[in-house]
Amino acid sequence: MLTELLINKGLVTAFLFVGLITWFSYWLSKNLTRGHVHGSAIAIAMGLGLAYLGGVYTGGNNGLADVAIFSGVALLGGSMLRDFAIIATAFGADMTAIKKAGWVGAMSVVIGVVLSFVVGAMVAVAFGYNDAISITTIGAGAATYIVGPVTGTALGASSEVVALSIAAGLVKSILVMICTPLVAKYIGLNNPQSAMVYGGLMGTTSGVAGGLAATDPKLVPYGAMTATFYTGVGCLLAPSILFFIVRYLVG
């Protein structure tokens, strides 16, 4: 009966669940790392760990959310509420900082897409792919796990290659979540301008959202703003200009 209740009131269960994880993470942060590792970084890592366990347990694609009593996690962590909360963080953001970094932010989106694409495409070539469609699709996946399948579908890539492109994007997004707080100091990620550049270069909205949340929540609106343009720009460039360049190079 309790199980049924937790499933029926899924979203409320998810609130309780996330609250408990957060409490435990901040407790760990304070007592185990003496505040060196931010509580939200631990909470996000714990979320990813639980997603892994959920995947092992159910064999599904939605991590912990495939476990029936945690189905509300899918709604709470879904794109609708995520975007709603991201937009809310913009309230009170510094308009002048955004204007100042506006053009660099825009430039970083294009550079970020091309950079990740080139890296992904080179890895695809290194692994023996030699047709332009597969190389382009895997390169696009290294941008984000949405750009990959959109490009693959547009070009008619095989489903194996599309799956690889999604996986590459997933690896990227998860790494960005985990690594951002660790490298923030070394890459100067401590002001609105660099946060906008960071969002534009990384592009994966979930990665940027998680990474900045664990680094400095005040920077979230600046990074998120540029990051949300990335997938669109990627879907624009990858199946067109970037594909033509790859086809020209591969012959």
Partner: peptide
């Protein structure tokens, strides 16, 4: 926002990311 991001992390397809092979 942060609690939502934690929930988002918990619903990622981490298995696919980890077990997809070296290329990815």
């Amino acid at each position: 926002y942060i609690p939502i991001v934690v929930a988002m992390a918990a619903k990622q397809n981490v298995i696919a990311a980890v077990s997809s092979g070296w290329l990815a």
